[in-house]
Simulated assay, not measured.
Amino acid sequence: MNFVAGQFPLWALWSGNALALGLLALAATRVRWRALEARAVNAWLGACVVLLGFWLGRAGLEPGLSFHLLGATVFTLLMGPWLALLALAAVLLGLAAGGQLEWPALGLNYGLSLLPGVALTALLLRLAQRYFAANVFVYVFVNAFLAGAAGMLLAALCGLAALALAGAYPLAYLLENALPYYVLLAWSEAFTSGLVLAILIVYRPHWVATFDDARYLDQQ
Rank of each mutant, 00 (worst) to 15 (best):
L106I: 09
L197R: 08
A122K: 01
A38H: 13
V183N: 03
G167Q: 07
Q129H: 13
L10S: 13
R204C: 12
Y181E: 03
W103F: 12
Q100R: 11
G6P: 06
A156F: 03
P9C: 08
V118P: 01
L101V: 06
G16Y: 02
G151C: 02
G98D: 03
Q7E: 05
G98V: 04
G80N: 08
G60P: 02
R58I: 00
A20W: 07
G22Q: 09
R130K: 14
T121N: 00
V31C: 00
G71T: 08
F67D: 01
G60N: 11
A186I: 00
M152P: 03
A59Q: 12
A161V: 06
V31L: 01
R58E: 02
L153C: 04
G94E: 02
T210Q: 13
A133T: 13
Y182G: 06
V136R: 14
L78R: 10
T121Q: 06
W55N: 00
G167F: 08
L114T: 04
L36C: 09
C158V: 01
M152N: 12
V4H: 06
A178I: 03
L112Y: 14
T73K: 03
L200G: 07
L78M: 14
A89D: 07
V74C: 08
L83W: 10
D212M: 07
L195R: 00
L51F: 11
